[in-house]
Design a protein around this nucleic acid. Sequence first.
DNA 1: TCTGGCACTCGTGACCATTGAGTGCCAAGA
DNA 2: TCTTGGCACTCAATGGTCACGAGTGCCAGA
Lengths: 338, 338
Amino acid sequence: MLSERRLEVLRAIVQDYVGTEEPVGSKALTERHRLGVSPATVRNDMAALEDEGFIAQPHTSAGRIPTDKGYRLFVDKLAGVKPLSTPERRAIQNFLDGAVDLDDVVARTVRLLAQLTRQVAVVQYPSLTRSTVRHVELLSLAPARVMLVLITDTGRVEQRMIDCPAPVGENSLADLRARLNSRVVGRRFTDVPQLVQDLPESFEQDDRGTVSTVLATLLETLVEETEERLMIGGTANLTRFGHDFPLTIRPVLEALEEQVVLLKLLGEAKDSGMTVRIGHENAHEGLNSTSVVAVGYGSGDEAVAKLGVVGPTRMDYPGTMGAVRAVARYVGQILAES
Amino acid sequence: MLSERRLEVLRAIVQDYVGTEEPVGSKALTERHRLGVSPATVRNDMAALEDEGFIAQPHTSAGRIPTDKGYRLFVDKLAGVKPLSTPERRAIQNFLDGAVDLDDVVARTVRLLAQLTRQVAVVQYPSLTRSTVRHVELLSLAPARVMLVLITDTGRVEQRMIDCPAPVGENSLADLRARLNSRVVGRRFTDVPQLVQDLPESFEQDDRGTVSTVLATLLETLVEETEERLMIGGTANLTRFGHDFPLTIRPVLEALEEQVVLLKLLGEAKDSGMTVRIGHENAHEGLNSTSVVAVGYGSGDEAVAKLGVVGPTRMDYPGTMGAVRAVARYVGQILAES
DNA sequence: TCTGGCACTCGTGACCATTGAGTGCCAAGA
DNA sequence: TCTTGGCACTCAATGGTCACGAGTGCCAGA
């Protein structure tokens, strides 16, 4: 086990490196931190830390920089979560309170997160699978054309156009609408397939075709939209990534464009509590030089979706974690109110 | 007026520079193009072109690169629109045909454009102001809570939650829905305010409060959502921008994050025909080193929105214009079918 | 176990010479 | 009047040398 002081040295290295973006040497360390020992001693400690793989030198005779493993130790043992200041909290709340609909909430959240952390923000829309049905609407737009509108308790709305095999009377449609709603309102989307399974049988022979078509589209929508949607922002912050970044930034931008990759990324985060994935801990190759801080958010105790930020491994972990957690909390409140 | 050959020289310079990204000299020009004259002659022509401001030297004793004015002349007089190959056209159509709803159409279009042009793609959602009303739906979610759903002929759907001053009966709601629809269906969104103006008066005293509230929200939605939505993609292509791009890419990414800026950008494009804005022709400062190629698209003759790409001024104009135009055409077809 | 000292490494930046692509200009030829 | 070859000139880029200095590892003594 590493001695108390060596941990302190690691903490100092991480803090300095995050601040200056330059490898930090023994002398500079003793000057900027009150370690109470001489540079030579720090050098010995650094050698030990390097042996254990927590720090590394870019080249011989340069200072040390933390490795992924070093950041991991820092996050797990040495860093707290830095709470936001009261003005910051107030600003968050004011900003989010102005939202008019779910799209707006998500859009504002992304902006907010990006601004607070000065990194790339990713916010997932509330998931269908974890939401409950507030209402299912069927609109007759043309004799054989029906629009299906799904509304969740989190305010999300999905719609699909349905071409029916035969013209549908307004009465049949109202009937179907009523029966459908009586079965599914308030239930979870994941349960819907079972709940409507035997619905066609209870209709007249004439209407069964239409009912089946509508239900088929409904179930299809559930499957398709289970691939969650998300929104990202703050990509301009990537330019603060590092000096060499033509090479660094490219794969990151590419990864960010692939919703699939991002969704997997958020999916890997724990359902409760904050998840920090550092550098190579991220499965996706393009994100090997980035860290991801993610957390679930929801209107109640349970998370309905996740949000987080993507930034360089060299990031201010305590501050970022504080911002992410605070934003998630306020978004949850907003959703609960709507 | 510039002689025929000088224009030819300009064309050659633009083509070479777009290809190589390096200043092009007189000798290289005569080697790669059959101009039929010697380098010395080309040098004279170049001097003339430089006097007129069409080309410039980055430093003395380097080759020439086109100026914004040079590109402008190239686009206006020298370049055609390069049509896509048949396989390319087929690929576009196949890709777009798979879309399930409007969001999907827009998302696919963005991907497609970005891929074809290898630049940043921007696609505007069909505008409310130029669309007509397909249907207005009112859903009672709780006694005093109504959801308003707006559906356009282009498949766009907007929804708003309304808190009514008093509980609303299902009958009153149906009545309002029917009267509202009979007035506005098939009409342009811009005409809606006038069309519903006197609607409250035709209701019983009891219901007027509710009716007014609903109408107020409806009109509000029209105003808010007139700020069009859009989607962008292909930002990873920015990395191919140039060698020096830390400085170049930054303001571009920032501009792309501001929907307002992008909307203004597209708004400046002509309603019909293709618009090319080169470098400093763009009002927004961050986009001074980029060119924008935009075109309107729509289901009929009239454009309901615009789409385009943003790339370096040094871009393949004929190819880009061809791709943009072709994609716009196919998207129009898809919208017309839905 | 800590500390001061010392030799060593190596990236960085300054300085300089060389190279070569590209230019402008001019005088001769078509 | 336009074109062309020749020629001197400019200047970015390349590469080599050198001194500097931040940083290291190791060792002997407290």
